[in-house]
């Protein structure tokens, strides 16, 4: 056996020092590329006006202020629709869409993973195929469908399609297959438990990481949803859309714009920090068999 070195947490085999140095250099450079723009956003949001328009521009803020956040809230107060309405819309859409996606998605995932019924193969295949294109291609046809249903310019046009989103179902089904044992379900069935009972009381408590992953994915998608082609009334628009309007306000609002971006990004990042270990656990079974 060649060189064997140990690190605090693991035995590491066959590692050259040169490789370690190269890898760490690469990670630091890439990390800087990823992190500095995020940090710059935060810095911009804390800069007073004279620092925002300083020449030459400086990266760091010297006398940080929360004035931009104050301005942001004042701008919110002047919007045509009360700003609380945008926040209400975003929360309604994110919560309503996520809840339905979790319920319908995990029920379907359970059936696909744990009940052997004719048709499950091609049904799951359709879910996999749906991961291979994004929603933009369906946008116009969906508009026609929304009009036919009379859902244009209602919350339904955003919330209901989110219930049928496939990535969460895919991850949930893969996770159930690898972590819910058939023997446990089988013995419950022999005891006379219905499929709904085994799904809700036995399988679901065993896949909590997958719940959380589905919730996070669905929530992030809906939280970040901005202008939708199906909704044109101002009072149905989202927080993200309103933020976009402030950003589009341009130069005068540069500080408030940065502040609004910080507000927007804080939520998904906080959600990810809390749920990271569960998401990684779910992703362990995300693999796609051919």
């Amino acid at each position: 056996m060649a060189k064997l070195r140990t690190r605090k947490h693991a035995v590491v085999l066959n590692r050259s020092v040169g490789g370690d140095v190269g890898i760490n250099t690469f990670l630091i450079l890439m990390g800087a590329f990823m992190f500095l723009p995020m940090l710059y956003t935060l810095m911009q949001s804390l800069k007073p006006l004279d620092e925002l328009w300083a020449f030459p521009p400086r990266f760091y803020v010297t006398s940080p202020t929360l004035k931009n956040f104050g301005d942001l809230f004042r701008l919110m107060g002047t919007s045509w629709v009360p700003f609380s309405r945008y926040i209400f819309n975003t929360i309604l859409i994110a919560v309503g869409g996520t809840f339905g996606n979790l319920m319908l998605g995990s029920m379907a995932a359970y059936a696909l993973a744990k009940i052997k019924f004719p048709g499950r193969g091609w049904m799951f295949q359709m879910v996999v195929l749906s991961l291979m294109f994004n929603a933009t291609v369906a946008g116009i046809a969906n508009f026609i469908i929304m009009s036919a249903l009379g859902w244009v310019d209602t919350y339904l046009a955003i919330i209901i399609p989110a219930w049928g989103s496939t990535l969460g179902l895919y991850l949930m089904k893969q996770f159930m297959e690898s972590s819910v044992s058939d023997a446990v379900l089988e013995s419950a069935r022999l005891d006379g438990a219905s499929e709904f009972y085994t799904f809700w009381k036995i399988a679901m408590p065993m896949v909590k990481p997958a719940w959380l992953t589905l919730i996070v994915y669905s929530f992030q998608g809906l939280w970040n949803s901005g202008a939708s082609i199906y909704v044109y009334s101002e009072e149905l628009k989202t927080f993200n859309y309103a933020i976009g309007q402030i950003l589009a306000g341009g130069i005068v609002r540069a500080g408030a714009g940065a502040a609004s971006t910080v507000v927007m990004m804080a939520v998904p990042i906080a959600v990810f920090v809390i749920s990271q270990s569960n998401i990684i656990e779910t992703m362990a079974s995300s693999g796609m068999k051919d």
Binding site: M30, G31, M34, F35, P37, M38, Y40, T41, Q44, Q220, W223, N224, G226, N240, I243, G244, L247, G257, A258, T261, M264, M265, P268, I269, F272
Partner: peptide, 14 residues
């Protein structure tokens, strides 16, 4: 650090 830009919505405006 590496994942957060992909979930932070309009932060790419920076």
């Amino acid at each position: 650090i590496f994942y957060s830009p992909s979930i932070s919505g309009a932060v790419y405006m920076i």
